[in-house]
Design a protein around this nucleic acid. Structure first.
Lengths: 152, 152
DNA sequence: CTGGCTGCTGTTATACTGTAGCGTTATCGC
DNA sequence: GCGATAACGCTACAGTATAACAGCAGCCAG
């Protein structure tokens, strides 16, 4: 006892990587921590900036390599339409999520909607296409901003 | 008579722009022609290269501005996951298409699948999200390449 | 223990993608 | 014509991403 009943995303990532026999090194964990604690998607150079603790002037490849690892492990997602990255909400099973992206407040909602998955799968099947990665990003205005009339 | 029964994408774009009261200028038409005659998506700088007929060394904003216009008019699509552009197959009605992108041969198939549209719409509705633009890109291996065993 | 292998990190330099801003030219309505 | 607006040309630069190579730590077979 003493350990909390609910683990945070970092602890779950630790466990996941141990199970898979891959190494969540301090650099990689740091990038994941930054993404998980952010309230919105971050660009690679924003992450880079956030990693400068005091003196270290890190170079882009450092963060891109960490991101490559985290993407492979499904711990973060890349939002292609924003050139930005976001921590995954349910990394326990591998998936390409679907995203609702508010252009007003920057809020991103990750979905894992079975109807969307199924419709994509069946469309691909019809042409014999073998899907490997799915990019589904819906840009618009979230309910909150619509309510406030902020949508422009 | 004398006019062919089937018009090409350029002629259809001409008619569309006239109907809408917008100008498909020579530069814009040229970019559209390059995209329509390409067998795969082209990056902005590839288009730029293709536009150098003999002497003219064009600058990036020229092609980006033309692309902005063509995107607005729904005459071309942007493939976010490739940073590349492709001519639209059925520009007569505005839409965000869905794309099957083969990582082996570069073939891109544009779909307009009602089931996909509907599942996206209903997922957005559930959260009150108001969609404006949909990015749907499935990366994988096309039937042809799967058949050839090229998929790696 | 040692040497080689592997994987991770650091660093420099550079490639690729996209835009701001400004002056000039063409087009259109009057 | 003439003024307003849209389109274009150009320079410069911002933002995103990767190639290539060097150093280092850990592991493990011999």
């Amino acid at each position: 006892m003493g350990t909390p009943a609910a683990f945070g995303p970092l602890e779950r990532a630790d466990a996941l990587c141990v199970r898979r026999g891959v190494r969540l090194t301090p650099q990689r964990r740091r990038v994941l921590a930054i993404l998980c604690s952010a309230s919105r998607p971050l660009g690679a150079y924003e992450i880079l900036e956030a990693m400068r603790d005091g003196s270290r002037p890190l170079a882009p490849p450092t963060v891109y390599r960490a991101l490559d690892f985290l993407l492979e492990q499904g711990l973060v997602h890349k939002l292609e339409s924003l050139h930005a990255f976001i921590g995954c909400r349910h990394p326990d099973h591998p998936h390409s999520g679907q995203f609702l992206i508010c252009r007003t407040c920057g809020l991103v909602t990750e979905l894992e909607d079975e109807a969307i998955c199924e419709s994509l799968r069946s469309a691909a099947d019809e042409t014999g296409f073998r899907p490997e990665r799915r990019v589904v990003e819906v840009l618009g205005v979230c309910a909150c901003c619509v309510g406030k009339g902020v949508e422009g």
